[in-house]
Deep mutational scan, measured.
Amino acid sequence: NQASVVANQLIPINTALTLVMMRSEVVTPVGIPADDIPRLVSMQVNRAVPLGTTLMPDMVKGYP
């Protein structure tokens, strides 16, 4: 099973992602692959992302 990117904390709308905000976890449904975490750094979320939420491609501005 492939690990996905999961919010490690509440991420407010328009926040630029940092490594501490994300963790990898095997979840269903599958979200953004954990391998993409380095690419996500400094990209902004377009909505508030609660703790434990799987990051989906449509939540991150400019992804992929």
Rank of each mutant, 00 (worst) to 15 (best):
N1E: 15
N1C: 14
Q2N: 12
A3Q: 09
S4E: 01
S4A: 03
S4V: 02
S4T: 04
V5Q: 01
A7N: 01
Q9K: 09
Q9R: 07
Q9M: 14
L10N: 12
L10K: 07
I11D: 01
I11F: 02
P12E: 06
P12A: 10
P12W: 05
I13A: 09
I13P: 14
I13R: 06
T15E: 10
T15N: 04
L17N: 02
L17C: 03
L17V: 03
L17I: 09
T18P: 00
T18W: 03
L19H: 09
L19G: 07
V20T: 11
M21K: 03
M21H: 09
R23S: 08
V26P: 07
V26R: 03
V27P: 01
V27E: 02
T28K: 04
T28E: 15
V30M: 13
G31M: 02
I32G: 01
I32N: 00
P33G: 07
A34T: 08
A34Q: 07
D35T: 11
D35C: 13
D35S: 12
D35L: 09
D36N: 09
I37Y: 03
I37A: 11
P38L: 13
R39Q: 09
R39K: 15
L40V: 05
L40E: 01
V41F: 05
S42E: 06
S42V: 03
S42D: 13
M43I: 04
M43F: 11
M43R: 10
Q44P: 08
Q44W: 09
N46K: 09
N46A: 14
R47F: 09
R47W: 05
A48D: 14
A48Y: 07
A48E: 13
A48P: 06
A48S: 10
V49Q: 02
V49E: 02
V49L: 10
P50V: 06
P50W: 07
L51P: 14
G52L: 04
T53D: 10
T53E: 11
T54Q: 03
T54S: 04
M56T: 14
P57G: 09
P57T: 08
P57L: 05
D58P: 07
D58N: 12
D58E: 13
D58L: 08
V60Y: 00
V60K: 01
K61M: 12
Y63E: 04
Y63C: 06
Y63N: 05
Y63F: 10
Y63P: 05
P64L: 15
P64G: 15
P64N: 15
